[in-house]
């Protein structure tokens, strides 16, 4: 992170912001270590941990065998044993191989033990499409984890959240899953020199507006902001909410906004059926139905495994234009 400016910001990327967060946590707390496939010598599949192996050595930047279940389970055990592990799972698709450990152990042990044990574990994984990685590396399966009581699920979309969510997650006494959108790693921007921990509880309004609420998270945030900008030129002022925490959902922020705008569209890269968007819409329907002026709507991925070919992959994903069209439908516009 060079090119320091007088404004007290530095140029960085989403990837570098996460790396800085890991590094800071390692320096601050000797109980913290990073473990996962190729996080060490290789530098991380998405190069997030590049350089950390040289700085901290193999004991604290631990390359694991390709054994998702045992290295996640080992993270759970190490957390029970007094450590503060950060476990990296290469992608959410691979996390299905360790879902047993996450769902049956990490999420249950506190409850099964009547509150005797807690598991201060952080699991980071990449999610999402856009890199032409096809159907076993591109899915947005975070909703599967957002379904599970006993864990917290967060999705940083901004540089500040990439930089700041990890420290707060490590302070949390319970398991926290951090979903990093693979399409964001290269995203550049300015960040405050003293950027640090941020809350992991609240949804945040990323753009103010009074006509419609657009609710999204992770990689879809920027498409949604682009859509909001385009809509503004057409006289529709959209408020954009970044969920940030997928479990628990910050209902208060969502409902306050929707009650004001009286319209909502949810943008979610997951598949429509059983999606996080479905949950958000259900909650708005349950609690703000009589405040609504239009049916709730959502923009999700097409229900196909994500294909390789670029044009096909893009056709499967939520796009800025689809968001614009969907919003206009909320105002009775049948899209020309």
């Amino acid at each position: 992170m060079s090119n320091q400016r007088e404004s007290g910001t530095v140029e960085t990327t989403y990837r570098e912001a996460i790396r800085a967060a890991i590094r800071e946590a390692m320096l601050k707390d000797p109980r913290v270590f990073l473990m996962g496939e190729d996080v060490g010598r290789y530098g991380g599949c998405y190069a997030v941990s590049k350089g950390l192996y040289d700085e901290f050595g193999p004991e604290r930047i631990r390359d694991t065998p390709l054994s998702e279940s045992v290295f996640v389970g080992t993270g759970i055990g190490a957390a029970l044993g007094g450590m503060r592990p950060i476990v990296e799972v290469m992608s959410v698709n691979f996390s299905l191989l360790c879902m047993d450990q996450i769902v049956n152990n990490a999420a249950t042990i506190q409850h099964m033990s009547g509150g005797q044990f807690n598991i201060p574990l952080v699991i980071r994984m990449a999610t999402g499409a856009g890199l032409q990685l096809a159907a076993q590396h591109s899915h947005s399966l975070e909703v599967l984890y957002a379904h599970i009581p006993g864990i917290r699920v967060v999705a940083p979309a901004t540089l500040e959240d990439a930089r700041g969510m990890l420290a707060t997650a490590l302070e949390d006494p319970d398991p926290v899953l951090i979903f990093e959108h693979a399409g964001l790693y290269n995203r550049p921007g300015q960040i405050a020199v003293d950027a640090g921990a941020v809350d992991i509880d609240r949804a945040v309004i990323r753009r103010k507006g009074e006509d419609v609420t657009l609710i999204t998270y992770g990689g879809s945030l920027y498409k949604t902001l682009d859509a909001a900008a385009a809509l503004a030129e057409q006289g529709i002022h959209a408020e954009v909410i970044d969920l940030r925490s997928l479990r628990p959902l910050d209902e208060a922020t969502l409902l306050a906004s929707v009650r004001r705008t009286q319209r909502a569209v949810v943008v979610d890269e997951g598949w429509r059926s059983g999606s996080l968007a479905a949950e958000v819409i259900a909650r708005i329907s349950e609690q703000a139905f009589y405040d609504l002026d239009a049916p709730l709507a959502r923009v999700c991925s097409e229900e196909v495994p994500i294909p390789y070919a670029k044009h096909m992959e893009q056709a499967a994903l939520p796009q800025t234009q689809t968001i614009i069209n969907t919003v206009k439908m909320c105002f009775g516009d049948r899209n020309d």
Binding site: G73, I76, G77, A78, A79, G81, M83, N104
Partner: peptide, 16 residues
């Protein structure tokens, strides 16, 4: 499913 927990508890012992 409980075996990895012991591996992790052992890692915590070793690291500490």
């Amino acid at each position: 499913g409980g075996i990895p927990l012991s591996v992790g508890l052992a890692l915590a012992d070793k690291l500490q």
